[in-house]
Amino acid sequence: MLLDTASLYFRAFYGVPDRSGPGETPRNAVTGLVDMMATLVETHRPSGVVACWDDDWRPAFRVEAIPTYKAHRVAEGSVHEGAPGGAAEEVPEALSVQVPVIVELLAAIGVPRIGHAGFEADDVIGTLTTRAIQAGRPVLVVTGDRDLFQLVDDAAGVRVLYTARGGVRGGDVVDERFLRDTYGVDGGAGYADLALLRGDPSDGLPGVKGIGEKTAVRLLEQYGSVAALQEALAAGEAPAGALGRKLAESGDYLDRARPVVLVARDIPLEGPVDGGVPEHVADPAALARLVESHRLTGVPRLLTALGIRP
């Protein structure tokens, strides 16, 4: 089970009431994440869990390709080491103070937290999914981000639990049939091609001007893939009329957008990451301190779900 961790703690922050008292650090994102993880493990019984991390929420290589990438999320006047242009993501203060607690808590329990400099959690998930496929291990990706639908692969046992609608309890389990029924595309690769053509305003990706989802699906049905469509364009076999003109006017957008849309599958994560569940709490003293100081009453349930000893 690969967790898009920021997606989950953002959801917890906005969905769980904060019951911290005066002078206390807010804890709704922390307690919500703990509850979500416990529910996920109880429901799906994974052989292992990895908390995938955004070491860089807006990687330079994506910004260089498409300067508008996530530009609307940059906090005005922010400075954040390692972020393109010294820009930090706009995050409420009541959430930002909880992120270090989440980091400490995962470390104390012993749940692997994996990130890599210059890459997003999506890229970590893409790389770990690829490693799991090579090892013959099924994967469940947990996220509220449609970008990761591109990883869906029935033959390899890769599915996505999409939490944006229904949360971790009632979210959609995305497989190839879901992608066909919902978007009219074949598999994860088809969804990636759809995203290339259509764009995604939530990430600042414009797509090919004038081409929406229905037109993109029609093009993919006709040509099979964006690569085949580009070959047809290069051979002077573009669709007729206004659609052909829109594609011609898009210039090199599809080539520039490809590394932005496609998650990395081979980033150099250090050491083997098998995603196994720890047999015991990594740091009992640190865990006890965090539970007491932040009143994390849900932690015992998570430990029980994981089957690890305190």
Rank of each mutant, 00 (worst) to 15 (best):
2 L>K: 11
3 L>D: 10
4 D>Q: 10
4 D>H: 09
11 R>A: 15
12 A>F: 05
21 G>P: 02
21 G>D: 03
21 G>C: 06
23 G>F: 05
27 R>W: 00
30 V>W: 11
31 T>M: 03
32 G>A: 07
39 T>Y: 00
41 V>T: 10
42 E>T: 10
43 T>Q: 13
49 V>E: 03
51 A>M: 15
53 W>M: 14
55 D>T: 04
55 D>P: 02
56 D>C: 00
58 R>S: 00
65 A>Y: 12
69 Y>F: 15
69 Y>A: 07
74 V>D: 15
78 S>Q: 09
78 S>D: 12
80 H>P: 00
80 H>C: 11
81 E>I: 14
84 P>F: 07
90 E>G: 02
92 P>G: 11
94 A>C: 01
95 L>S: 03
97 V>H: 06
99 V>T: 05
109 I>F: 06
114 I>F: 11
115 G>Y: 12
123 D>Q: 11
123 D>R: 08
125 I>K: 00
126 G>F: 13
131 R>H: 13
136 G>E: 14
137 R>P: 02
139 V>F: 07
140 L>Q: 07
142 V>K: 00
145 D>N: 10
145 D>R: 03
146 R>V: 09
149 F>A: 02
149 F>L: 04
153 D>H: 14
155 A>R: 14
155 A>T: 15
162 Y>Q: 10
167 G>K: 00
168 V>F: 07
171 G>L: 12
173 V>T: 10
174 V>W: 08
176 E>T: 05
176 E>A: 12
176 E>K: 02
178 F>M: 04
181 D>T: 11
183 Y>H: 15
186 D>Y: 02
187 G>W: 05
188 G>D: 13
189 A>T: 12
193 D>T: 12
195 A>H: 04
204 G>V: 10
206 P>N: 13
207 G>Q: 01
207 G>P: 08
208 V>T: 13
212 G>I: 08
217 V>G: 06
219 L>S: 05
221 E>T: 12
221 E>L: 05
221 E>G: 06
221 E>W: 00
223 Y>R: 02
227 A>F: 01
230 Q>N: 12
233 L>H: 03
233 L>A: 13
233 L>G: 03
235 A>R: 13
236 G>Y: 08
240 A>M: 06
251 G>N: 11
251 G>H: 08
256 R>M: 09
258 R>C: 04
260 V>Q: 09
272 P>L: 04
272 P>A: 15
273 V>F: 07
283 D>P: 07
284 P>N: 02
284 P>V: 11
284 P>K: 07
289 R>E: 15
290 L>P: 09
293 S>W: 14
294 H>L: 15
297 T>P: 00
298 G>C: 04
299 V>M: 07
299 V>S: 02
302 L>K: 00
302 L>Q: 01
302 L>N: 01
305 A>G: 05
305 A>E: 04
306 L>G: 09
307 G>N: 04
307 G>K: 10
